[in-house]
Amino acid sequence: MNIEQYIIDIKDKFPDITNVEVINTKRLMVYIPQSLLPKITDYWFNELQYRYVIVTAMDSKDGYELIYHYSDDSSGWIMSLNVLLPHDTPEVESMTSIVYGIEWIEREIMDILGIKFLNHPKPERFLLPESWPEGDYPYRRKIRKEDR
């Protein structure tokens, strides 16, 4: 797979992409604005038939990072979509209408980071115990929050 050509092609196809970066051998990270997420997910999952792997959610300095991992098994590349959500309004469209298997991980991220997935078919508690207090999210960085 010619990765230089691939990067040029995907930038042509989606001009809104902010940055494309090869982070490691056979690992590509595509930084996109939130609005582009459904379109590029559809393109990768349905048209290019990339395999859905998982979503990583992370509390970083500038906001909540959601990293959607897909795998191109014909070449062994792992393609990741990086979406940055602001700390104040952590909301994003649910991808369940495109990728069926994504339902569980979105519920898990709701639990651990408090990110709201719009139009999720079953936005209920998934991992944490019933006694866990509402509004307490174990993976949010608490120290940073107080500093702000």
């Binding site: 490691n24 792997v53 998982i54 991992h69």
Partner: peptide, 30 residues
């Protein structure tokens, strides 16, 4: 940096995402 590693377990692909900030422990490990 960011490291993404996968391996074929008996049940299928195991996937690990590790973010390091140069310190001695991972910042995020998915």
């Amino acid at each position: 940096g960011i490291g993404i590693g996968h391996a074929e377990a008996p049940r299928g692909e195991v996937f690990h995402f590790v973010k390091s900030d140069g310190g001695n422990s991972p910042v995020r490990h998915k």
